[in-house]
Design a protein around this nucleic acid. Structure first.
Length: 239
DNA sequence: AAGTTCCGCAACCGCGTCGCG
DNA sequence: TCGCGACGCGGTTGCGGAACT
């Protein structure tokens, strides 16, 4: 084991880079179709995704999982991370297990980009205040000042990307039955040019109309609508 | 307005561990 | 017990947008 092991998959045959909408959909549908209680892992072969299983896992855990909490870390969460990091070090998964809805990757990124800097500032201020006998401000007060400054500069995940994912999950979760045939997923590839990482291609993705159209298309294709709804949606698709 | 630099985040990579045959 | 494949984890990279000049 260890060194010299073969790659987890044939690198020349797997797709890399940002995930497309159709790939996301296939991955989510594969989860929706499998018995999650059993914990059957990544059926990327089943849905014929040209993605490495590890990549599927990562995409699911960090982005597509319905319970992933998105957006800003709260000051409480940041404090928790700092405290847990003190206890566990760079054991991100361990830290993530104490923060429901947050992923290890996300925490790692926040730590490396924000909290590390914040700690440096805190240490600096600690040093300054300890060396200055005239300082009357409490450590906590300084801490909060730094904290708010840091939070202001914290850039949230694109809200439009979030909206798209949330729309997607509303759609998926509203659909209690799972009539989808995995074999019918190939036609979704026509939507491959839509890229879910809308932060990178806003023109393509943030268009909510396109998003809605996409979802409507899926509902029709997957046979999840009543006749009346379908008429209405067919009209919508004509637009 | 255009070019450059900085920053944040998603995704990839490699290694360790686990579980099964 | 061994070998292999899959999973899990932490470190790192590269892309794209924001900020700056």
């Amino acid at each position: 084991m260890g060194k010299g092991r073969t790659a987890c998959c044939d690198k020349s045959k797997v797709k890399k880079g940002p995930w497309t909408t159709s790939e996301d959909l296939k991955l989510v549908l594969s989860y929706k179709n499998m018995d999650m209680a059993i914990g059957v892992p990544f059926l990327n072969k089943l849905v014929r995704l040209l993605r490495c299983g590890k990549s599927c896992r990562l995409r699911w855990i960090n982005y597509l999982r319905p319970d992933v909490k998105r957006g800003n870390f709260t000051p409480q969460e940041e404090d928790t991370i700092i405290n847990l990091h003190r206890a566990f070090g760079n054991r991100w998964s361990k830290i993530a297990s104490h923060l429901p809805g947050r992923t290890d990757n996300e925490i790692k990124n926040v730590w490396n980009t924000h909290l590390k800097k914040r700690l440096v500032v805190m240490k600096k201020e600690e040093y300054n205040s300890s060396s200055s006998s005239t300082s009357t401000s409490s450590h906590q007060g300084q801490y909060m000042d730094n904290n708010s400054t840091t939070l202001e500069s914290f850039s949230p995940t694109s809200s439009k990307a979030n909206d798209q994912v949330m729309d997607f999950w509303e759609y998926m979760l509203d659909t209690s039955s799972t009539p989808t045939s995995i074999n019918n997923l190939d036609h979704l590839d026509s939507y491959s040019n839509l890229d879910t990482t809308s932060e990178h291609h806003p023109q393509q993705l943030v268009d909510e109309f396109e998003c809605q159209k996409w979802l409507t298309y899926l509902e029709i294709e997957l046979g999840l609508t009543t006749n009346n709804q379908q008429d209405h949606q067919n009209n919508f698709m004509q637009l």
